[in-house]
């Protein structure tokens, strides 16, 4: 229990991903599927940020870096900037995917006047 409390962010990550995965796979409404997708991606973003976070860490920017004259400080005290940069990319990818998903949902709605998967499949069978 103590372990869980200390790592509560990971608990939230798991909860978010479960909600996302469930609504991607089990929901019948196309928009809810898209929302689930966004929640799932948010869970992953939070996961990456969590593994890069560190208590009382230094900012990973060194003023003298340009001319390579700095002495390398204790790496263990510097926060890892890489996870945040990776997630910047992942956010962009997520937005693009969500955009394409919603555009497709809109096209489907124009055809069938419905977001409900069962109704659409019923319509297509006719």
């Amino acid at each position: 229990m103590e372990n869980l409390m200390a790592n509560f962010n990971y608990v939230i990550v798991v909860v978010l991903m479960m909600i996302g995965l469930w609504s991607m796979l089990a929901q019948k409404n196309l928009i809810k599927k898209c929302i689930g997708m966004a929640i799932f991606q948010t869970g992953i973003i939070l996961f990456f940020i969590s593994i890069g976070a560190k208590d009382n860490a230094l900012v990973p920017i060194l003023a003298e870096a340009a001319n390579h004259t700095y002495a390398v400080p204790d790496v263990a005290k510097i926060a890892n900037p890489l996870t945040q940069i990776l997630m910047l990319t992942a956010i962009v990818v997520g937005v693009a995917t969500l955009g394409v998903g919603l555009a497709l949902a809109q096209k489907i709605y124009q055809q069938h006047s419905s977001f409900d998967e069962d109704e659409i499949l019923e319509n297509q069978r006719k």
């Binding site: 995965l21 992953i44 992942a90 990818v93 998903g101 949902a105 489907i108 297509q124």
Partner: peptide
């Protein structure tokens, strides 16, 4: 019908990519 097929592919493909990304994490 391609819209619905593409939408299903999008959901499945995004799930796959997300699982991959989680593994990379």
């Amino acid at each position: 019908r391609a819209y619905m097929a593409a939408f299903n592919y999008l959901i499945m493909g995004t799930m796959g990519a997300c699982l991959y990304l989680l593994g990379v994490g």
